[in-house]
Design a protein around this nucleic acid. Structure first.
Lengths: 111, 111
DNA sequence: GTGGCGTATCGTAGATCGACGATAAGCAAT
DNA sequence: ATTGCTTATCGTCGATCTACGATACGCCAC
């Protein structure tokens, strides 16, 4: 839906520049894309989608990575908003933020 | 903020393993996502989509980056296959590879 | 060929990532 | 309060990214 006005002219005039909102838009998409820019994070998201929720320890078992490394990836995913964790006693139950995922899908689809 | 659903579901003993193809799939998606994991590259792709094709020099003028930096971003985009450049005399006309873009859209949409 | 234009590559420097082990922090049960 | 389990953070290392200027390459026009 974030359509940009058509400046579909020939590659002759460099007069047009990207609108300011476009910069923020690019940063949003870049941030979300960056969250998925590592295979481990992609697999984590996939895992959470398959299970709807999951503990950190289980993710660790699925991947050849140390617990601290997985925790860091989860932190990144949380910072981008793609994943959220709910404290459940001594554990944390992670799940995908479907709103953020939908936003990413829309940004990509509207590309 | 966004709220999360109940944590009641215990993530019991389902020690499922990701299928092997899933690893390759994750790497593919990660690679494509990585291409868009930088605002400059997002803007480049957007610019190319708006114009269907564009020279490197024009991209440079649209962004506060040196020509060599833009060239490096273009190289990354080419390596991922999202963008391709046609040599047109002394210049290079870049355009988005719609197949690769469609592949990315599908990978994201199927998430 | 020479010159000029557009692009790619090189080399460098600073910042960030990705990985790990070690350690701290939080909560439930004893 | 102490123990045990789960997760987060710290500190560090090597690798990679990002940016830039400088330079090399390719292609026309002259």
């Amino acid at each position: 839906m974030v359509k940009v006005k058509a400046e579909s002219q020939k590659c002759g005039t460099a007069s047009e520049k990207l609108a300011l909102p476009d910069v923020a838009w690019a940063e949003d998409l870049a941030k979300l894309s960056w969250a998925l820019a590592h295979p481990a994070r992609v697999r984590i998201v996939r895992l959470l989608l398959d299970r709807t929720s999951c503990m950190c320890g289980e993710i660790v078992e699925e991947m050849p990575l140390a617990q601290s490394t997985v925790s860091q990836h989860l932190k990144i995913l949380k910072e981008t908003g793609l994943v959220q964790g709910e404290i459940d006693g001594p554990r944390v139950c992670y799940c995908v933020n479907s709103d953020a995922l939908a936003a990413l899908k829309k940004l990509i689809a509207d590309l």
